[in-house]
Design a protein around this nucleic acid. Structure first.
Lengths: 185, 185
DNA sequence: ATTGAGGTATACCGACCGGTATGGTTACTA
DNA sequence: TAGTAACCATACCGGTCGGTATACCTCAAT
């Protein structure tokens, strides 16, 4: 990844997320990144490929953030680690996600199932589900897959309701529900 | 609402939902509805106004559907009525919502908080929360507001995860969690 | 009988879209 | 020292965008 490409990807990430994908032109991305359109196309090939890269980059950031919070050192029980997911989410929304889940938003704008970005979206949610499942298993859940599914629903629901601004304390609420679920499983 | 306007709104609803708002041009809507652009602009004034009308119409349809399922005749306990929300959701997703919540999707495409469509989005979620609160109160919940919030999180989360295709049985899962929440409240 | 509302058809506007072409500059490297 | 990768700047391509203008038609209500 060349320096110019790095700048393009950073700017694209900000503009795509803040304004929506279709609302942002490659011209604007290039100029804001201090790069010519030619360079952008030399590095990424097409806008669609750039979109996929944007999503991939964001996925990496989210995974790192989540893992950093959940797998922090200290004597924490596996059940409590599972709840840390919601703490990570709350911080993520506050710091980097005021306009909702980038993947849900991208999915809304990319109806074509063959779009390269769609793979990234699928992988992102799939990974999160698997991660929750692993944590659930470590927490000794009788049915880790089922608990993980419930938790994913809570995470996604809390994200949507928070960013739509109807329920400010949705993440905390979801965490409480999760606590109850974990205890009774 | 003139016949031509009705056709425009119907076509716009289908195209906006299926393809995303920005991806659809007024030209395409007009021609598909068998109407000239002039007529479209005479009736709706602008694309943004048409977007707001599209959302309003869809909100009406969802409310009618939900109420029809939840308030069906028969001897049903208030607690069970609360669970019927998830049956209504499952049918709604299968019949009319394969690409996710139209309001969440629209929110992703309309970052400008002053856009006329944003009011409709806010009202839609607000109404649903209020409706759930009423049902929760009738079901004898100790804290109806809190229960309603939890249920809204479950509804939104189930919708997102289902339409993203990661968890096919998400609505059923959410319903089970809801059942547990209702019983313990 | 006239008027006005609700249409039709066509043409136009400036602006922007994603993407390409040409050509030149710098800097590292084989 | 020759070559190449990574940029720069500018101009261009066909097509589409939201929105407007002009002119004509039909039909029900005053």
């Amino acid at each position: 990844m060349t320096p110019a490409a790095e700048r393009v990807l950073e700017v694209a990430g900000k503009l795509f997320y803040d304004n929506g994908i279709h609302a942002v032109g490659v011209e604007g991305i290039a100029s804001e990144a201090g790069v010519t359109k030619k360079t952008l196309y030399d590095r990424f090939g097409s806008k669609d490929a750039l979109i996929a890269q944007y999503l991939r980059r964001r996925d990496e950031r989210w995974r790192e953030h989540l893992i950093r919070v959940v797998e922090q050192r200290g004597r924490i029980s596996p059940s409590r680690r599972l709840l840390l997911v919601f703490d990570a989410l709350e911080k993520w929304i506050a710091d980097e996600n005021p306009r909702g889940c980038a993947f849900v938003n991208a999915h809304a704008e990319l109806p074509d199932a063959t779009h390269p970005g769609r793979d990234v979206i699928r992988e992102q949610k799939q990974w999160l589900l698997e991660y929750l499942r692993t944590l659930a298993r470590e927490a000794g859940a009788r049915n880790p897959r089922k608990l993980a599914t419930s938790l994913l629903v809570l995470v996604e629901g809390a994200t949507v309701t928070t960013t739509l601004g109807v329920v400010p304390g949705a993440v905390g609420n979801a965490k409480e529900v999760a606590k109850q679920l974990i205890e009774s499983s």
